[in-house]
Structures are given as C-alpha cells and as structure tokens.
C-alpha cells in the first residue's frame, strides 16, 4: 500500500523521500525512483488525491501558453517588437498580433516604443523556449501610467488568492488598480499614498507566502498601516 511521509504544505528540500508506492502519481517538482517518489526542488508539498507535487518557492519564470504577462519592449525589429518579461528568454510580438489595423511599418515606435510596458498574452512557446505574444484579447493593452513591481513568479498565485480573494482584498483596501502578470511583474495604479501601502503589502505576501492564514494577516497589516499613517498626520 502507498505511504505518504510528508504532510500537506510542508517544506521539503531536493532529495527528500515524499511517498512510497506505485498507486501515487509523481507530479511537478518530483521524480520517481523505483517505488519511491522523491522531491526535485525546494518547495511546499501539495497532495491532491493520488497526485503528489511540489509548489516551488523560488526559481525563474518559465513561459507557458495562455499566460497573461506584463512585458517591457526592449527592441524593435523588422517584423515586430522584442519583449522582456523577466525570464532569461525574450519574446517576439509580431506586427500582425499587435492589435492595430493601420501600422506604418517604417515607424513602429508609434505603436509601442522601447521602454513601454504592455499587458500581453503568450500564444506559443517552442521547445527552445522561443515565445510569441499577442495583443489581441480582452484587457491586453499598453500601460500608460502606474508603477511596476517585481516579485518571484511563483508567488503570483498567492497574490491573486483562491478565486481572486487576495487581489480583491488588496483592491478594496487600497483603492488601487492592480494587474498581476503570471511572470511576477505586477502593475499598480492609484493614489501615491495608497500605492506605498500596497507595495508593502505585496512585499509581505512575497516573504510569507508559505504560511497559513495569509489573507487575514494581510488585511490586518494594511489596516494597521493605514491607522499609523493617519495618526502621524
């Protein structure tokens, strides 16, 4: 019979034996050796019925099809734009996918200039991790104002929360607009004082994402910050 040696949400290091038995499936971040399932990366154990996997706590962003990400235009080529998205691989946004109908091919800077930030979506990733992007879709656009902060991409699910609970809390408490790209880049826009609180809250989530009861703690944290700012005035 299958035995599981680790608890759900326990921190494990590479090489630790997670489970033994052939009726358990080795998920992401694990590998099977004979009957044993062993951790391959540093992270939190996640047990979902018969699948055991590891949610990483660190590491780079690996592009995935259909991810909505925030990118920065870093170069302009003959056929489109080169986009940096915080990964060692860079992406191409071709003219066809720019969402604009009339484009002067000789002056692509009119659409997106170098240094512009965009919300974009990944449409394809090759085996060598060459990435193609599109701007065709709901909410995909150039970001004209606001502020970009960068966190570890593996923390994004916690910043969004279950069914968007965390991000809605952040929006309500700080009255800022927030868009979290899957690549770990977050765009925020609001009153400068609120932005400061929001950045502190996001930093706290980034640091404590592996602990339980995060949403409540963040709510208390933001309210406490607001109170202390009011008092100091």
């Amino acid at each position: 019979m299958a035995k599981i040696f680790k608890k759900d949400r326990e921190i494990v290091t590479p090489g630790e034996i997670l489970a033994e038995g052939m009726d358990i499936v080795a998920g992401d971040g694990t590998y099977r050796k004979e009957t044993k399932i062993i951790a391959k990366i540093l992270g939190l154990v996640k047990i979902e019925r018969r699948v055991i996997k590891i949610v990483p706590l660190s590491g780079i962003y690996m592009p995935k099809v259909d991810d909505t990400i925030i990118g920065k235009i870093i170069d302009i080529t003959i056929s489109g734009w080169r986009v940096d998205f915080g990964s060692p691989y860079s992406a191409i946004l071709s003219i066809k996918e720019s969402g604009e109908t009339r484009i002067n091919r000789n002056n692509l800077t009119k659409v997106f200039n170098i240094g512009d930030y965009i919300i974009t979506k990944i449409i394809s990733v090759t085996s060598q991790n060459l990435v193609d992007l599109t701007m065709k879709g709901v909410g995909l656009r150039k970001l004209n104002r606001g502020y970009i902060i960068k966190v570890n991409p593996h923390k994004i699910p916690r910043i969004i929360g279950k069914g968007g609970s965390m991000i809605n809390l952040l929006k309500q408490e700080t009255n800022c607009k927030i868009i979290a790209g899957q690549n770990g880049w977050i765009w925020i826009d609001g009153n400068p004082k609120d932005e400061v609180i929001l950045i502190k809250a996001i930093e706290k989530i980034d640091k404590e994402s592996h602990l339980d009861g995060l949403t409540e703690r963040i709510r208390d944290f933001i309210r406490e910050l607001k109170r202390s700012i009011k008092r100091s005035r």
Partner: peptide
Amino acid sequence: LADAGIPMRDL
C-alpha cells in the same frame, strides 16, 4: 543551488 530553485536529484 537548491535555494535558487534549480531542479536537483539530491544535495
């Protein structure tokens, strides 16, 4: 290396 999130069989 483990801290950087690099996949490895063991330390």
